[in-house]
Design a binder for these strands. Sequence first.
DNA 1: ATAATATTTGCACGATTGCGCGAATATGCA
DNA 2: TGCATATTCGCGCAATCGTGCAAATATTAT
Lengths: 113, 113
Amino acid sequence: MQDSPDIQQACSAALAARLDAGFFKALGDETRLTIVLRLATASGPMTVSEVGTCCGTHLSGVSRHLSFLERAGIVSSEKAGREVYYRLNHGVLAEQFTGLVAAFSACEQYCCC
Amino acid sequence: MQDSPDIQQACSAALAARLDAGFFKALGDETRLTIVLRLATASGPMTVSEVGTCCGTHLSGVSRHLSFLERAGIVSSEKAGREVYYRLNHGVLAEQFTGLVAAFSACEQYCCC
DNA sequence: ATAATATTTGCACGATTGCGCGAATATGCA
DNA sequence: TGCATATTCGCGCAATCGTGCAAATATTAT
């Protein structure tokens, strides 16, 4: 199989599948990035209140941000009693970013000049 | 040097430096992602008008999106006569994503349980 | 100089977003 | 049962965003 329109189509489709606006949108807010950073450097799962101490916003906003991040697959939650523990999905992030690198690289190699 | 608050601080700072909301915000819009995909699979630089054929929006909007992407470092422009040629900064994207993988991985290794 | 083409900019509109506040819900404890 | 704590939800507000349209600008061609 050599460089043909077929392989270019495949590269394009693979990259398109990786380009999820929701994922990037979730990371495109300062407060949410602060939360992500806090969770990334935590020694374990954190409650909403604990996360809330790192960013100056109201706790309801923190709860909403965490839900947003969870919907994007970036964090996971687990309910324990009246508290909800959030943790960062390191695996998802690593897989996404490495996948993006590979997809962009493939496009550059097979589609570009 | 072993796992100490110092190295945790270093990991946190390194990740914080990578977490640029503007960068993610630039990729957090469907139309801009369509433009990025188009440029990623192009055989060379493209004019604003050429890029515009891939997304249903008005040409002025395409111009604005390209400016946004350029401000985020994702694309570069070069003026040639009355046309402006845009191209994807593959290197920047690769460096950003690989850097993110490394920074998250370091945090997971040295800060987390 | 005049006309045609490519791009950018100003403007207004509708939609979305992040936020704080208070109420509602859920759970644990006395 | 009553009370305190943790989280979520509904509401409204201000700010931002994406868009189309028309005008302005820049450059090329006649």
